[in-house]
Each structure stands twice: as structure tokens, then as C-alpha cells.
């Protein structure tokens, strides 16, 4: 149970009120072409009831980061520290991690069809976190039905007896969320939970996650490739590219006063439903680099319209530039900070 005694490892002094504190997280996978650094020195905090967005394209390391937060990446390839309520998940014993997962920290996967067991009823699967913790069967089932109702499944008592194939994509995603919430976690990590869903269903899932943080004090880390979705939900956003943090700030800072060329490019290339229709959408040339073939210097330099010679050789540190309000990993952050958001 969540109330059991925790080994009280001394938390780093800078944690403050953070419930989750990630420092210098690096995940390196071995491959035939040499080690691939999927996540490269990530540091961030999550406070109780906070809604943090992590945005990135394919290969940015956002999903590997999410997996690392649950201790799902191989330990021998993961360095740094992930301190959850005073306990380092990267050194905690495996059975301790099992006790935390699905209970104190839970995860909503991207693909609800492959994450659900086709041979078991929805009700059984939602109740499973409780059954694993020896909650009596009847009670577990009752709470599963209640939770299905909470996430907006109509007629939950009847639908609990259905199998995953009898549910639509949006309903399956809500089942995943019900599974993630039934243990009353304090931290939910949602990896692209609304990708492939219709926009109206997507809006409902967003509302549900919002309600969780607002009414139940749960913290949510929402991982996505879509800056549109984060705008209404997130309070703070981390922009990832090639395994690194490019920019980190409050949501309003990011959307209205970004000082990183990648973020600016992403915002500019989004098709919008209001405002003038441009002749051509502004694009970021090229594509995100494969983690196995990262460019030298700043990983974004081959696609950057503000590139300078030193960008090709010097990896930019993530820091608040003079005159800026928030950290940006760009050698020209100071120049951009003089005209925040103007270049969109």
C-alpha cells in the first residue's frame, strides 16, 4: 500500500516542494553502430498537482524518458537520478518499484489496444491493480465499475463485462485511464494518450486529466508531439529534441514568448483553424535526426534558420540567457530574448 514505510534516503537540497525530481537522466542503448543516447542529461521537477507537458517529435527521447520514470529502462543503461518522494527509483529494489507502479505512479500508454488483454473483461483489467494488492474481489470490482463511470463510460456495470474489442478507440483509452487511476496514484504519466483519437474524444480526455489535478491533487506528466493539445492543459512545458531539453518554461511563456528556434518553428508550422490562411505553411526543413546519427554541436543546427558557425561545434547549454526569463538551449538565446515570440 502507499502508506507503507519508505526508506528515507536523503533528498537533494534543491528539490524543494517537488514530488518528482529528475537529475541528469541519461539513457544509452547499445547498438551495432555504437551506443545510442536516447535521453541526454534531462533534469526537471514535478510538483504535486502540477500539469507538466513534455513535447517532442519522433526520436526526441520523450517516450524513453517516460519509461525511465517508471524504472522500465534497463538499469545498466540508465544513469542520473529519479527521486520520487525522497526515494531514488534508479536504485530502489525491483519489488519496491513494482509496489509503486500502478499505485503511486501510474502510466497511460499510447496504444490502448495493444496495452489491454483481449482475453479478459474490461472490469477485471481495471480492477487488477486492486486485486494485486489483496483488495477483496467484490470490493475491487465495485470500485472498477465506479472508476469506469468516473472516466465517462456509459452504463459501466454492463460495460465492465465486455472485452476490449467491444470498445471503440476512445473508450479503450478511457479504460486505460481508469486503470491508471484506480490505485489513486499521486503521479500519472500519460504518453500520447490522445493520439489517434477524434478531436471531441481528445477534448474529453483532456478535461478528465484536468479534473484529476484540480479536484484530486494528482500530478500529470503529459507527453505528446502536439503543441496544440498542451496549450489548454499544461502549466509548464519542456520541449525535447534529440534527447535533450531545448526549452523549459510556463505554458504562456512558451507559446507567446519562446526564445528557441525549434519551438518557434514548431509553433509556426502548425495549421490553425483561425486567422489568415497563409499561401504556404512555414516549415522546418529536413526531419528530426535519428538518435544513432546525431549531428555535432547543437543537434538542431542542420534545420535551424538562425544557425551560426559555432552552432556546428558547440553544444549549447540549457540556461537562462541575459535578458531572458527562462532557460533555452541555444547559443543565440540572448539575441532571441531581445525579441521574444516576435519571430513566429
Amino acid at each position: 500500500m502507499s502508506t507503507q514505510a519508505r526508506p528515507d534516503t536523503s533528498a537533494p537540497a534543491d528539490v524543494g516542494s517537488a514530488m518528482l525530481s529528475v537529475r541528469d537522466l541519461t539513457v544509452t542503448f547499445p547498438s551495432a553502430e555504437g551506443p545510442i543516447r536516447a535521453v541526454n542529461g534531462m533534469s526537471f521537477d514535478v510538483r504535486p498537482r502540477e500539469r507538466l507537458g513534455i513535447v517532442g517529435e519522433s526520436g526526441s527521447g520523450k517516450s524513453v524518458t517516460a519509461q525511465a520514470l517508471l524504472g522500465l529502462t534497463p538499469r545498466e543503461h540508465t544513469t542520473g537520478s529519479i527521486v520520487f518522494e525522497g526515494e531514488d527509483l534508479l536504485t530502489a529494489p525491483q519489488d519496491r518499484l513494482r509496489a509503486l507502479r500502478g499505485w503511486d505512479i501510474s502510466y497511460v500508454f499510447q496504444d490502448p489496444l495493444s496495452a489491454l488483454d483481449p482475453t479478459r473483461t474490461i472490469g477485471h483489467q481495471v480492477a487488477q491493480p486492486l486485486l494485486l494488492r489483496k483488495v477483496p474481489k467484490k470490493e475491487a470490482h465495485r470500485r472498477a465499475i465506479e472508476m469506469l463511470g468516473e472516466v465517462g463510460i456509459p452504463d459501466p456495470a454492463r460495460r465492465a463485462r465486455n472485452y476490449p474489442h467491444q470498445f471503440s478507440g476512445g473508450m479503450r483509452q478511457r479504460v486505460m485511464i481508469a486503470m491508471a487511476l484506480i490505485g489513486q496514484p499521486r503521479l500519472v504519466i500519460a504518453d500520447e494518450p490522445t493520439t489517434a483519437l477524434d478531436v471531441r474524444v481528445q477534448a474529453k480526455i483532456i478535461d478528465l486529466l484536468y479534473r484529476l489535478t484540480d479536484e484530486q491533487g494528482v500530478a500529470v506528466v503529459f507527453i505528446t508531439h502536439d503543441l496544440g493539445i498542451l496549450a489548454g492543459l499544461a502549466e509548464r512545458v519542456i520541449v525535447m529534441y534529440a534527447g535533450r531539453v531545448m526549452e523549459e518554461c510556463s505554458t504562456d511563456e512558451l507559446y507567446y514568448r519562446s526564445i528557441h528556434p525549434y519551438t518557434l518553428g514548431l509553433l509556426e508550422s502548425l495549421p490553425r483553424i483561425t486567422g489568415p490562411v497563409p499561401e504556404r505553411l512555414v516549415t522546418i526543413g529536413g526531419g528530426p535526426p535519428a538518435p544513432s546519427r546525431l549531428p555535432t554541436g547543437c543537434p538542431f543546427h542542420p534545420r535551424c534558420q538562425y544557425v551560426q558557425p559555432e552552432c556546428r561545434t558547440t553544444p549549447p547549454p540549457l540556461e537562462v540567457p541575459p535578458g531572458g526569463e527562462h532557460p533555452s538551449a541555444c547559443l543565440r538565446a540572448e539575441w532571441l530574448a531581445e525579441r521574444p515570440g516576435e519571430l513566429r
Binding site: E146, G149, E150, G152, I153, P154, P156, V199, R200, Q202, A203, I206, D207, Y210, R211, E215, D226, L227, G228, I229, A231, G232, L233, T251, D252, Y255, Y256, L267, L270, R272, I273, T274
Partner: peptide
């Protein structure tokens, strides 16, 4: 329902949706 990259208008939409639907109640 289309999310737009504009926090102010998105938050307004979210608030509007929340007041249109009673919260918390299980169906």
C-alpha cells in the same frame, strides 16, 4: 474541439466545457 496553440483561448474553451458539464458525478 480542435486544440489550437494558444493557451489563453484554450483555457477559455476548457473552462467553458467544464461549466457546461457537471463535474465529479459518476454517470
Amino acid at each position: 474541439a480542435v486544440p489550437e496553440p494558444d493557451p489563453r483561448s484554450e483555457r477559455a474553451k476548457l473552462t467553458a466545457r467544464r461549466s457546461a458539464q457537471p463535474t465529479g458525478a459518476s454517470r
